[in-house]
């Protein structure tokens, strides 16, 4: 008894909170909730509400109203539709390429490479994250210019790069977001118990069969987790298209072009990538992968 009173005296805040669970909860969540609701959700809400507002065609001043004109523009203008489809294609392509690279790399790092090589590869994957985003985009631009590194390297083989176009945008975005796919996939493969590989081998499965029947099903949650990053980050990007896409236009390019002159159209158009991501998450949830993440 005397011990308790001692500690009560010494830790007044703790004992106060111990007796009041609601205050405790409030204290715990106050800061993150202020952030999420006050800053994140509220500003997102303001942005989306703007999509229904009017804009003065001359002064670009926005005034509250309710009209669906901006949405009509987005769903009837062929350029907007084509750009949405193109952006979706680019995001899916980036995700696919990331998976195709990440799975063999992850298997190699987790199961084959020596610890020293494994560490070296882990550093190599994460190292680009240390460089600025714009630096990486410009670097890709310099690599793929007509007289750039790629064409110089490939010249003896008679190969020339495609010039700034959609394939280079996909490659640039893959370069930017690859760590977000490679790290979860590698971690997931490392966590597969070695006995499963032994069991698979005992039952007569060769290497590819083991990867297909044992490894892939176990790392699907990691692939989904990685793809949420690669897919949604690619959907929102526009600087890669600006610097390495030639005349390629993405959703972000149109939003950026409208943000000062016609904020309601920009807001309405930003619903498109949000819709894509929501659909993607719902599909991912159906597969049950989100619960296992």
């Amino acid at each position: 008894m005397s011990d308790t009173s001692m500690s009560t005296q010494r830790r007044p805040i703790s004992s106060y909170l111990l007796r009041r669970p609601k205050v405790r909860l409030l204290g715990l969540l106050a800061l993150p909730m202020t952030w999420i609701v006050g800053v994140y959700i509220f500003s997102l809400f303001l942005l989306l509400v703007t999509a229904f507002w009017n804009v003065d065609p001359f002064t670009s001043l926005v005034s509250p109203a309710f009209n669906l004109e901006n949405f009509r523009l987005i769903f009837t203008n062929s350029a907007y539709i084509a750009t949405s489809i193109r952006t979706l294609f680019i995001a899916l392509a980036v995700t696919t390429v990331c998976v195709v690279f990440a799975v063999p790399l992850g298997i190699f790092m987790a199961k084959i490479a020596s610890p020293r090589l494994r560490n070296a590869l882990a550093v190599a994957i994460t190292l680009p994250l240390w460089a600025g985003y714009l630096v990486k985009v410009i670097a890709m631009r310099l690599v793929f210019t007509e007289e750039g590194f790629f064409n110089w390297l490939m010249a003896p083989l008679g190969i020339r790069g495609p010039g700034f176009s959609i394939p280079i945008v996909i490659l640039t975005l893959t370069y930017l977001w690859f760590p977000y796919m490679a790290l979860p996939v590698y971690t997931a493969i490392r966590q597969i118990p070695p006995i499963l590989f032994d069991a698979s081998s005992d039952m007569g499965a060769k290497g590819f069969m083991t990867v297909y029947r044992v490894v892939l099903p176990l790392i699907v949650p990691a692939i989904i987790a990685g793809s949420v990053f690669t897919f949604s980050l690619s959907l929102g990007d526009y600087l890669a298209a600006r610097f390495t896409g030639g005349s390629t236009q993405m959703i972000g390019s149109i939003i950026a072009a409208n943000i000062n002159l016609n904020p309601p159209v920009a807001a309405a158009y930003s619903m498109v990538p949000i819709t894509f991501v929501v659909i993607y998450l719902m599909v991912a949830r159906r597969t049950g992968s989100l619960e296992r993440m």
């Binding site: 804009v55 065609p57 001359f58 670009s60 523009l73 203008n77 062929s78 350029a79 907007y80 084509a82 750009t83 005349s247 236009q249 390019s253 149109i254 072009a257 409208n258 002159l261 016609n262 159209v265």
Partner: peptide, 15 residues
């Protein structure tokens, strides 16, 4: 045509 019309039209140029 106003600058707003120009901005809308410009988006269609790049497709």
């Amino acid at each position: 045509t106003s600058f707003q019309d120009w901005t809308n039209a410009w988006a269609t140029v790049k497709g």
